[in-house]
Nucleic acid binder design. Structure first.
Lengths: 339, 339
DNA sequence: CTGAAAGCGCTAACAA
DNA sequence: TTGTTAGCGCTTTCAG
């Protein structure tokens, strides 16, 4: 039970007084400058532990002139963002990057409307641009190093690391077509996201180019969530002419579709092929290993930190832009159509 | 294409010079002190936008004497932590709490071994204590306001908000017993966590007290993940004398067990009852709504911020300890045994 | 090897 | 209403 009382915060001066040295010397032992007399150093150490003294990090930064060592990670706070494999992988990558670069990681879950309270941050990483374009613009305006993930914001003067989602959608479609499918359905991602729109675009174009017709009844507008996927699956399966394959814009959705299929006695991949997007390890378990399109989320997050960190530290300048290629991962959930 | 060149960081002095006023006046308009002459204020504003001046947050803090306004959230970095509904709900609650208290949220994903680089933080919230007990002890030692979530750390001089997990396990067992089940299995959570151990303890004790025998073949040591749950389910279902009910220490696991059951043609709840833990909304979708034991994760996170924030701001002192009660949520996945 | 002194960029009395 | 003057707590020359 800690004793109470208004304990005034102790500072380097108190320590210096108690050790009977100057504050400079205390500062030296704090910073492990080797040229301090052993005995004096010991005395200082004692005083430090006596007072449980912890240097004021703010004052240190100001004196050292080190501008903020924190990176802000801004994520649109729409419900469910956290529950997506996408956001979580990004976080892990960013967390890891910050750990290795010794940067602090500050989270900002935002509605996108209020201007970010971002004064603490030396750099900003945006998880995507959804309704928060103005925040990105603010960052650009006041010169804060910023990078946008998973959204090739070519119209803004900002760095980004994105994935070629058009290609991703095309890869899925091509694979399904190559297997011989003609009746191919899709559940899209959230169409507010560039990724969602582009995956669908690549998918649809590829179908057209291959001369595979795309019925509107094979289209379901989703939002990456399992819930939507279930609804979509139920609708697809009830069709007079059900699809023989479906492309889901996230693995979570693909997995849910498999569940619905099994519940209805529809066999995967014999009766229906399912391909996902993400390469979520959850796809490895379950009844059949999921065929999917992989995107390197963790690596993106990690690289984002490196880029922004380097700009913050003045090692780099200018815009950094990179578009990564997604990759087909063939497992067990797709096969040629039987009907 | 930004012009390059070593642009020296501009400070309040530059702005003052350009607006031809004292830095105090600039400071005033920065802080929206109302007593500034309109015209002068406008001149200052101009200078500010001209230079794209942003006050140095570090210097502001030092001058204002406001100790850190950041709360650190420390989560053990074991693989999969992020993928659990548990961690994610906590995060949401904490994120929300910080937003309303206007505190910054700094994440620390830690292996538990290295002493936290936590100088930035005015307070710390620990997601649990797993292998990072020493970090909690450090915080206590240097007087950083700290709170542990989901772990009643009575042996440490620290605040906590926990859930009565013994009771949670008991609630699940009681319900199953009341339905008439005699062959009840369980997949536990990670036994490194207090929650995992206590849930099992409450479950087992209740069975014993009710005179329901508990076979070791009905026990599977899990880790909250779907993967373990699948393995457990496969083992349970293959038993000569399979259980008629199973208690899973997380909804994720419960959901996976339902999947395995359906794949094997076992009907839920007719052939087997399943009860989970968490009240994960995912349990609402899927083929049958999941019966579960609810714990108020979001609220815990939110309250934790309030507690730590108040201590940081000197509004409160002393230890705060609270144990919340879990609650039975009856839905469709449990029924009396048929055999 | 140690200490005095001058800031880091800003805020906050206190005067004017 | 505005400016002068001290600091906030620490680091860092520069002498000694």
């Amino acid at each position: 039970m800690g004793m109470n009382g208004i304990t005034k915060r102790i500072s380097i001066t108190d320590v210096a007084r108690r050790a009977d040295v100057s504050i400079t010397t205390v500062s030296r032992v704090l910073n492990k400058v080797p040229t301090v007399n052993k005995e004096i150093a010991a005395r200082v150490e004692d005083a430090i532990t006596f007072y449980k003294f912890k240097p004021n990090a703010t004052a240190q930064r100001l004196a050292r002139g080190t501008l903020s060592t924190a990176i802000g990670f801004v994520i649109p706070g729409f419900p469910g963002i956290f529950h997506s494999f996408y956001a979580v992988e990004l976080m892990r990558g960013i967390g890891h990057g910050c750990e290795t670069m010794r940067l602090d990681l500050v989270f900002h879950i935002t509605d996108g409307l209020n201007p970010l309270r971002s004064s603490y941050a030396g750099g900003l990483i945006f998880a995507d641009i959804i309704e928060n374009r103005s925040q990105v613009e603010d960052a650009i305006a006041d010169g804060t190093p910023a990078l946008v993930l998973n959204h090739a914001a070519g119209d803004l003067d900002v760095s980004y690391i994105a994935v070629d989602n058009v290609k991703g959608g095309a890869i899925a479609a091509e694979y399904l077509i190559s297997l011989g499918h003609k009746r191919i359905a899709t559940v899209t991602g959230n169409m507010q996201t560039q990724a969602g729109r582009e995956r669908f675009e690549g998918f649809q174009k590829t179908l057209m180019n291959a001369g595979v017709s795309f019925e509107t009844e094979y289209f379901y507008k989703g939002d990456y969530s399992r819930r939507c996927a279930r609804l979509a699956a139920e609708r697809f399966f009830a069709l007079d002419n059900p699809p023989t394959a479906v492309f889901a814009a996230s693995d979570d959705m693909a997995l849910e579709i498999i569940s619905v299929a099994m519940e209805s006695g529809i066999k995967v991949p014999e009766d229906i092929s399912i391909i996902g997007f993400d390469d979520n390890p959850a796809g490895l378990f379950g009844p059949i290993a999921l065929t999917t399109v992989k995107q390197p989320l963790f690596a993106m997050g990690e690289e984002a930190v490196k880029v922004v960190g380097d700009i913050m530290q003045g090692k780099t300048q200018g815009l950094f832009r990179k578009v990564l290629s997604p990759e087909l991962i063939v497992r067990e959930s797709c096969a040629p159509p039987s009907s």
